[in-house]
Structures are given as C-alpha cells and as structure tokens.
Design a protein around this nucleic acid. Sequence first.
DNA 1: GTGAAAGCGCTAACAC
DNA 2: GTGTTAGCGCTTTCAC
Lengths: 349, 349
Amino acid sequence: MAITIKEVAKRAKVAMGTVSRVINDQPGVNPKLRERVEQAIKDLNYRPNARARSFAQNSTSVISFIQSNRHLLHPFHVGVLQSVEEFCAEAGYLVLFTSYNYSRETKSSELQLPKVLQSHGVADCLILAGMNSENFVEAVEELGVPFVLLKNTYTGGEKSRPPVDMVGWDDFAGSIEATRYLLELGHRDIWFIADTSYSWYKARFEGYAQAMRDAGLEPRGQTIGLSDNLYANGYACMDMILDHGYPVTAVLAGYDDIAYGAWDALVKRGLNVPRDVSVVGYHDEDQAQFKMPGLTTERVDKFAVGRQLARMAIEKLRSPGKRLPEVVLPMTLMKRGTTRMLVREASLL
Amino acid sequence: MAITIKEVAKRAKVAMGTVSRVINDQPGVNPKLRERVEQAIKDLNYRPNARARSFAQNSTSVISFIQSNRHLLHPFHVGVLQSVEEFCAEAGYLVLFTSYNYSRETKSSELQLPKVLQSHGVADCLILAGMNSENFVEAVEELGVPFVLLKNTYTGGEKSRPPVDMVGWDDFAGSIEATRYLLELGHRDIWFIADTSYSWYKARFEGYAQAMRDAGLEPRGQTIGLSDNLYANGYACMDMILDHGYPVTAVLAGYDDIAYGAWDALVKRGLNVPRDVSVVGYHDEDQAQFKMPGLTTERVDKFAVGRQLARMAIEKLRSPGKRLPEVVLPMTLMKRGTTRMLVREASLL
DNA sequence: GTGAAAGCGCTAACAC
DNA sequence: GTGTTAGCGCTTTCAC
C-alpha cells in the first residue's frame, strides 16, 4: 500500500541500509548517495512507517500522561498537560493522554489498569498526574515502566516515597509566606477556607496554622467542604463564617476559585474587598491578574511543573533505570489588589 | 528482555498461533488449551508487545487529537479533549494529544507538520480541533489520513467544505434565540460584544444582527477586540460603551468570560446586573451556574461535541474511506439570573 | 562507506 | 481446532 524503504532504495539505486542511514541522519553516508536517496524520498513522497520503526528499534518516542482521579477541566491540570506537551514536542516526543479513575482503596494487584498499561510498549515512560495514591503507583512499579510523579497530589498512606522521580512545590512554605504577609498588614482575624481532606489543602492549612501560632494567634479554618465546585464552596464557606458573625478581616482561600466564591459572598453582603476584608488565593489562575482589583495569590507555576515533569520523563526514557532527584518548585506571593493594610478603626474609637 | 508469545506457547505446550488466538479472544479454541494458555500468561506475567502487534496488524488503536492555534487552557477546548478521551477509552482507543500552531497564510505544501504526521502510522485517524484553516486541512487530505474536523472554528477561505466529517453547532440560530429572548423581555438597547474577526463570534454577531433587524432595531456591536484575554476584553468593551454614554439595557457577550468581564465593569460603575443591565453569555462554562446570580447563557454542549468527534473518528477508523454526514448540535438558552424583564421607567416619566 | 541479510514479536493464511 | 510458517518494514550487524 504505502511506499516502503525498499522502493526508495530501488529508485535511488542503493541498499535499504543506506536509506535507513539517511532517514536517521546517521553520519558516514557518501553525500552523492545521500542526495540520491533524498531525491527518491521526495519523488515518492515517502514517509517512514512509524510502526515498523518502533518495532525494529524496540522503542517509541511516546510519553504517556495519565491524569488520575481529577477532571482535566481544572485549570491547573490542563496547564500542566499543555506544558508537558509543549516540552515534549520540542524534544521530539509525543504525548498520549489518558484519564484514569480509581479508588485508593482497591488493592494494587486488583486495579483495572488503563489500556495504555495493559499491553507493553505503547509508551516508554509515564507521567502520573492528577491525584494519585499508593496502590496505583505500586502497580506501575510492578510493571517496571519508568514514571515521574506529580508530588503534591499524591497521598501515600504510611510509607512515604523516597525523594526521587517527583515534581512538586512547597505548599507549606507558600502558605506561611501568605499568612505572614497578612499578619504584616495588621490582620489578626484571618480565616482559612478549603477542604483539608485533600492533602495539598492540608499542607496549606498547616502552613497557615503554623504562621498564626507563631504570631500567638488561633488558627480559624472552615476546612470542611460544602460543595464540590470550588467557587461554590468558597461562597458557601464565606457565607457560613459571616452567618456566625465571626470576626474576620482577611481570608486565605485554598485556591483562586475558592477565593472568587468567597469574594462574591462578601460583595453580596455589601462588603468591599479589600476595604472590609482582604482575600488571598492560591495558584494564580488566568483571571487573577485581570480581575479588578487583581487577586492577591500564592502562585504555583503550573507550566514549570509541566516542564519539569516532561524533562524528567524524557531523561528517564533515555537512560532507563536512572533515578532523578525530586524537584521542589517555590511558590511566589503575587501581591495585588485584594489585600490591604488594616487600619484598626474599631480600636481607635 | 520481556516475555514473548513464544515463551507463553512453550510453557502452555501449544503453538504460537493458539496463544495469539487466545489473546485476541478469537473463537474456536479448545477450552482446555485456552485454560492452559491463560494460566501460562498469568504465570509469566505476560503482556503482549503493542509495537509488534500494531506492526503485524498494520493498524493502531490510536487517535490523534490535534489542537491547532488555540491554548488548551480555554475551558471549551479542554472540555472537548476530555470528552473525546472518555469516549475513546470506552471504545478501547488511545488519544495522542498534540498542539500545533501554524499561520493560515502558509502554503499548504510548506507547512511544517507536527511530528505525529511526519511519519506514517502513528495514529490511524485524526481529530482536528482548536482553530483550523484551509491550508492545514488540505495538507492532511494530501497525506491521505482520515480525519474529523471541528467545524465552527474552521475558516475556509472561499471554498467551503462539503458537509461531511465535521462536528459543529448552530451559532447563528443560537444567537437569534438569545437576542429574541432579550427582545421579549422588552429590551431595545442591546449591545453585542466580541471580536468578530473570529468566525464563530462573527456567526453569533450575525444572528444577533438578524434578530435585531427583524425587530426593526439597529444592531450595536463592540466587535473589535481590545484584549486577547476574554475577561479583560469584556471589561474594556463594556467600559468603552459606558464611556461613550450609549444607551444600553442589555449586553450579549460572545463568550461567558467576556460576559464576566462586562459584568464586573458594570458593577464597578455602581450598576447592578440584572437590575440596570441584563447580561447574556455563550457556552455555559463551569462557573455560569454557580455565580450569583447565575449567568444566562446560550449553551454549547462541549462534551457532546467531543463525543461526536470521537464517535466519528472511530467509525472512520473502522471503515476507511467512509465519509460521515456532518453533525450540527443545537445550542440551548439557559435562562438564569442575569436577565430580567425591562420595566421602561424612563418612558413612564 | 555500502550492501546483504538476520531478526524484532506478532498475525494470519494455510496445511493438516 | 491446532500447528507451522511466511511476512509485516525497518534497524543493525557483519562482511566486504
């Protein structure tokens, strides 16, 4: 059906081996022959057969991106995928996207693995993104396929993983930074909002709590999720705090969308941000800088996360068995318009 | 290195062919032998070599999703991808994700094609999503790889494509519906906001304009983009309209994010939605139903779009050469809280 | 530097 | 119903 290397060889009047060398840019081919081969390739409109090639080489330039237990719709996760793909494309690798849902309760050996793992050789390295747990990572290790893991969304049970082949960022330190900033602005009644049954929100809450205690203050958290939608959860939690009449001059919301929800709940009550209440988010998603005023937020560079995941995956692909040191990216506080110095009017009265 | 079919055959004391039949669930294998083979597979922890298999069969179960000229970060596009992947996974197909940027000015034959198309046989069918133009589609046709095209974001130059192998929705009709709804609510000063240099916004503007003219009214559009960020564009356009002091009681914003920007610009001026101005968006992205009040919007079911694309891609994969009739999905008006009946106080005075 | 040929692991056609 | 074997298109080794 399609043109093969044989036909190219015949037309160029060389051996198949020579054509192969030309296609693969291998040195040591007589320029004259190379020329002839290239002409024949053009004439015949030849494209090498990727299947035959990867079979013969026993390798593919495909990296499998597995998005576990989280909708890709989440702007953070798409950002990671997008950035992984860009980095891989640049380096000449293809990205196979699979979403995979499993329960963390299922025994490792009983997991119904995604198709990409059911046979062997579809992809030569995996990126385990989304939200993973021990059982799946164990199953992957069992298969012996090299992989790189997104750290912050991994929940590992008792055993924690050695600090290799992972990419993450420092939620705890970031949270301390954000909380200290609010404290410096004079805030004392600072609330934390996010469902801490997720490990990353938990780390953020702990950073917040630590900074509060360091300042001799009591941490105040609305840490039980009231909705699966982040925005709606922020709205509901803020509402609940206000309903109870708790004093609050600043809110640390575990994610930008939660912050937007809280913000709208405040506005609904006639409160102004940042005049009456300061609001801080996490992640710095797209809208954050465009909203008026811009949302102050603790930034995670999701593109950097993707790039690191891709870089490591490619490196592992090239030197099988190699273990790469964990990468921990910093968070950065983006100081924008939703936070302001607290003027303690009440105490001036 | 890895276990092969040969070793399984030896262990089960059958021929390779029999093992192959068992793996591929082919009928006509003695249950006893089948049993023995399955046991051997388990014992040896055998996983078939996907590379060898696809080479021998001269086919892969891989569909290539090509996202052209648009960031995946856009919630619509991720939604399509996510839904394509879900449908494909269900049917036993894998999705290769590639983003590809090109200029619509480049000649078809001079396009630097993405890696997935540079060799032959990586994927057996393509989904051309994102935003495409004639030159690339022509190049793909030249290659002879079957493909399915996302219609509404395709800009075809003079020649329009025959109504096959495409999935779309009816922007024009949806826009007429939304505009008529505002007219029924008593609005006359209805503005349209969106950069109509994009074909889908153009179709929406035309539907709006048609409905306005049908009602004997002059269409009023802020159709020049003031920012690449949708939210920021909505904000800026609304600002400009208000700056000029144009009468406006309702805004039709070409996309939900544009609507949010316009909304915030109104609020900033002390105007209330929907009391002072009604706002309508398009697409029904995630937040639309959670915002307070919920955004009235003309819905595109992006998941349905993805499902249709995937369904057609798989069908084309299975029967090569087949052309499938174009699918046009309806839009649906989601009536929520940002629109209200206009009480013409001014005229009562 | 080039040609010839073995072989990658599987499928499918054929013989029994 | 099962075993045998050719062959898929390429890479790579080996001889020249």
